[in-house]
Design a protein around this nucleic acid. Structure first.
Length: 854
RNA sequence: GCCCCGGUGGCGAAACUGGUAGACGCUACGGACUUAAAAUCCGUUGGCCGCAAGGCCAUGCAGGUUCGACUCCUGCCCGGGGCACCA
């Protein structure tokens, strides 16, 4: 063993040894428990970023830990390789997305390998490989057959200059990011997946995902958004046509307080009114120009316009005016709402603004009502008033009675409504999985026969920002109808990239099968035992994957309902943001390393601080992991990313923290070196240890128990590392060089090496050898804590008087409460604060604490 | 706007099931070694009062429950994530 810690050399040697032994290639093995540890696969954006390092280090620590627990561990890796950035790079540099993507993959793969992750690379996949995406197409066709996939129109952002559809991200302040032209909404035909058909199951099953973070389950439940309410019809006769305006409400008990109804701009009644009234036309057109993003819609000033039309109240028969409101969402419920200004805050504000009547119909006991100003309790449940036959009923009774009466009149019923919408998967983009449909002038939309799959994406096209290159490629578009053989056109839309990431975990388990989407190997490995990825995926990706898995189940491809048994949502990695905003033009960002004390190093002038934000290319605040590995080694990079912060928290980058981790590695290396220089050390004779040796040995075994628990149960890698550092500090303070002392030290250092091996696998392998052990450390078992070593004769009890810490007493571990009480009251400091007052209460927490209440 | 999460020293944090607030690391300061610096090692490091022993205050803010609250409850303030075409 060298006396200096040389990570480059050590890490190369360890990685070669693993490669030579095929350490991380796994296959199905019924004799051991399987453990499938999966990290969300990366988008190949160019270089690894710190979020990746954090994500994959967490996965690798858990994989290596579970391997030490005796599990057959699968840890695969692949590439979420389709997506918008490849097209943007193409527009900027003129390089084909395929080449750009594959070059990035090659580079990032080398980076991952240099970090020493225990990945089974034989299972690597990229979603842009036809061998992968053909199964997207294949299952899509099964969905069409089952009516899960269907076609209808959807709304997109349209850039009128580039004649192209824009992603939400490409719309900045209502304008196209490249052209600056005001974006328009367009209705185009799109394919949808009927995820709403699974809404009930997706919601109900959340209860059984008890190893998912509570907050993710809550977010998903709210996203799916089950609402129980009443669907009510407001009949009308307009231009001699009879009809009914349908609304959905969760507050049917307030229906007698309806003083207007509001419809979305896209609602048929709005369109009807617009045809008759120029003002309505202008308002509706204005609404259609606004953003399609919900966050934008929800923050708009609430505006409306009267249509001049009226509907009849379904119970009272009163005439109710119809308004168009910019806050009414066509996609939720019926695209129309009943306006009850008396008991809905938004309706109240709307009524005030437009002079509509406010009619209180609920009495909340003990609370006054005045139409002058909104009060929070106006929307509370209460008893009906001013509601005719319903007066005096509480919420549940009123809803029941009103639903019954509506139903009797054929004007309504109870209804469950979901916030969840069907999943639109059509993208008017090149770099994605082609949708396997052929448009035939005679037969209509014809599915591509299975035998013709995959529909290959041509890889030589270079997008230029105008339209979809696929649509311009004759070679791709022109084809024959599979049914009748006439000239036909291929669908040029591609699939949402969320499709690619909705089932890749199945494919890892049965890599290389070119005859089926999945096989029996997937049955062995699935479900994923531990899934790890960013909290930003808490809703969409995870929900789509849960949905897709159920579709596969219903197609007979798997018996699994839930793809991910346990979920860890890692926090984001943040760094400082620095920028300048020129009077005209775009914001310019500067990397934190270019800035010192708020000034740009290059010109000495001030730059603005954007605080801490996620590391991103666009904000130029990423830290390149490669530099970290080159300078300190992979082990230090891994140790640093796992230290100091629990994995679920946001991680704030700090250069000094890296130095700290590196120092610890050097210190530990030296300690092992110094110990080994003293020659062979035997096993401790536990019967003859002195008090100091027993205490040190107890700490070793306490730490073993704690670290195992921190990794295995709590996923608190930061406290696991802290506990090992604490143990190291105690070892470093020990000056016992007796044979027994050295034997305890040998046991302790072996324990430290084993405990740290999931975090810093290269250096610990070298130390393991230095300590005289010949095996591959990855194949060792996690050591169980020795119960005998943990035993203690006395315990220290904290003594409080009136809840304040006043003293500590040492008592035998098996002391009776009366003895503890006596000892506590005898403590001089305690006696001082009790000062002869009678003890009103004596609280005793055995082995821990007493509280004397006087 | 809506949904979710978080807020503890100079900084990142720990305190797991309501029971010793600040483990561990970083920074800063002091010291040792050195011709010097770096590296390394040792010590101090929540605030206030005190020579000390010790005491008081303190977990975003304002209340509440409890023998006891960082932890539970109510309201507020601030920060982060998501909002369906970034992945």
């Amino acid at each position: 063993m060298r006396d200096r810690y040389e990570p480059a050399e050590i890490e190369a040697a360890a990685q070669q040894e693993w490669a030579a032994a095929g350490t991380f290639a796994v296959r199905e093995d019924a004799s051991r428990p399987k453990y499938y540890c999966l990290c969300m696969f990366p988008y190949p954006s160019g270089k690894l970023h710190m979020g990746h390092v954090r994500n994959y280090t967490i996965g690798d620590v858990l994989s290596r830990y579970m391997r030490m627990q005796g599990c057959n561990v699968l840890q695969p890796m692949g590439w979420d390789a389709f997506g918008l950035p490849a097209e943007n790079a193409a527009i900027e540099n003129g390089v084909a997305p395929a080449k750009w993507t594959r070059d990035n993959i090659a580079h990032m793969k080398r980076q991952l390998q240099s970090l020493g992750f225990g990945i089974d690379w034989s299972r690597e996949l990229a979603t842009c490989d036809p061998d992968y995406y053909r199964w997207n197409q294949w299952l899509f066709l099964r969905m069409l057959e089952r009516g899960i996939a269907y076609k209808t129109t959807g709304t997109v952002n349209w850039d009128p200059v580039d004649q192209t559809v824009l992603a939400n991200e490409q719309v900045i302040d209502g304008r196209g990011w490249r052209t600056g032209a005001p974006v328009e909404r367009r209705e185009i035909p799109m394919y949808y997946l009927r995820i709403t058909q699974y809404a009930e199951e997706l919601l109900g099953a959340l209860d059984r995902l008890d190893e998912w973070p509570e907050r993710v389950r809550t977010m998903q439940a709210n996203w799916i958004g089950r609402s129980e309410g009443v669907n009510a019809a407001f009949p009308y006769r307009i231009d001699g046509h009879d009809g009914a305006l349908r609304v959905f409400t969760t507050r049917a008990d307030t229906i007698m307080g309806t003083t207007f109804v509001a419809v979305a701009a896209e609602h048929p009644l709005a369109e009807l009114a617009a045809q008759r009234d120029a003002q309505v036309r202008a308002f509706v057109d204005d609404c259609r120009r606004s953003s399609v993003m919900e966050a934008d819609l929800a923050t708009l000033e609430k505006k409306g316009v009267a249509t001049g039309l009226a509907v009849r109240h379904p119970l009272s028969g009163a005439a109710i005016p119809v308004w168009v409101g910019n806050y009414v969402l066509m996609a939720y419920g019926e695209g129309a709402v009943m306006g009850v200004p008396g008991h809905d805050e938004r309706d109240f504000a709307f009524a005030k603004k437009y002079g509509l009547p406010i009619l209180p119909v609920i009495d909340v006991e003990g609370r006054p009502y005045s139409t002058d100003a909104w009060q929070p309790w106006y929307s509370d449940h209460g008893r009906c008033v001013n509601s005719g036959a319903y007066d005096g009923l509480d919420y549940a009774a009123a809803v029941d009675a009103i639903a019954r009466d509506l139903e009797a009149g054929g004007l309504g019923r109870k209804q469950v409504v979901w916030r969840l919408r069907d999943w639109g998967i059509s993208r008017q983009r090149y770099w994605g999985c082609p949708i396997p449909i052929i448009h035939c002038p005679a037969c209509g939309d014809v599915p591509v026969p299975d035998a013709d799959l995959p529909v290959r994406l041509p890889e030589d096209l270079v997008p230029d920002g105008t339209g979809n290159p696929l649509a311009k490629s004759k070679a791709f578009v022109e084809c024959r109808c599979p049914k009748c053989g006439v000239e036909a056109q291929r669908e040029t839309d591609t699939m949402d990239t969320f499709v690619d990431s909705s089932w890749y975990f199945f494919r890892f388990a049965c890599a290389g099968n070119d005859r089926a989407m999945v096989d029996g190997r997937a049955a062995y490995w699935m479900p994923v035992d531990q899934y790890i990825g960013g909290i930003e995926h808490a809703i969409l990706h995870l929900l789509y994957a849960r949905f897709w898995t159920r579709v596969m189940r219903d197609c007979g491809l798997t018996a699994v309902d839930e793809p991910f048994r346990r979920l860890l949502t890692q926090g984001m990695v943040l760094n400082e943001i620095w920028f300048r905003k020129p009077a005209s033009g775009r914001i310019v960002y500067y990397h934190p390393s270019e800035v010192a004390e708020g000034k740009l190093k290059a010109d000495g002038q001030a730059v603005e601080s954007g605080g801490m934000g996620t590391m991103s290319k666009s904000r130029r605040n990423g830290v390149d992991p490669q530099q970290l590995v080159d300078r300190y080694g992979a082990d230090t990079a891994r140790l640093f990313m796992m230290s100091n912060v629990p994995p679920e928290h946001t991680f704030e980058w700090s250069d000094e923290g890296v130095e700290g981790a590196f120092r610890f590695m050097k210190r530990l290396w030296k300690a092992v070196h110094a110990h080994v220089q003293g020659g062979h050390a035997g096993r401790p004779d536990v019967a003859t240890l002195d008090a100091g040796q027993r205490a040190l040995r107890r700490l070793v075994h306490q730490t073993l128990a704690k670290v195992g628990d921190d990794i295995g149960r709590r996923r608190m890698f930061n406290t696991a590392i802290a506990a090992v550092m604490e143990l190291y500090n105690a070892l470093a303070a020990s000056a016992d060089r007796s044979p027994q002392g050295r034997a305890v030290m040998q046991e302790a250092l072996e324990g430290v090496v084993l405990m740290l091996s999931p975090f810093v696998p290269h250096a610990t392998q070298a130390m393991w050898r230095a300590l005289g052990r010949d095996s591959l450390l990855v194949d060792e078992r996690w050591p169980a804590a020795d119960e005998a070593a943990l035993a203690q004769d006395t315990s220290t009890i904290v003594v409080q008087v009136n809840g304040k810490l006043r003293g500590r007493i040492d008592v035998p571990v098996d002391a009776a409460e009366s003895d503890v009480r006596e000892a506590a009251l005898a403590d001089p400091s305690v006696a001082k604060f009790v000062a002869g007052q009678p003890v009103r209460k004596f609280v005793y927490v055995p082995g821990k604490l007493v509280n004397v209440v006087v």
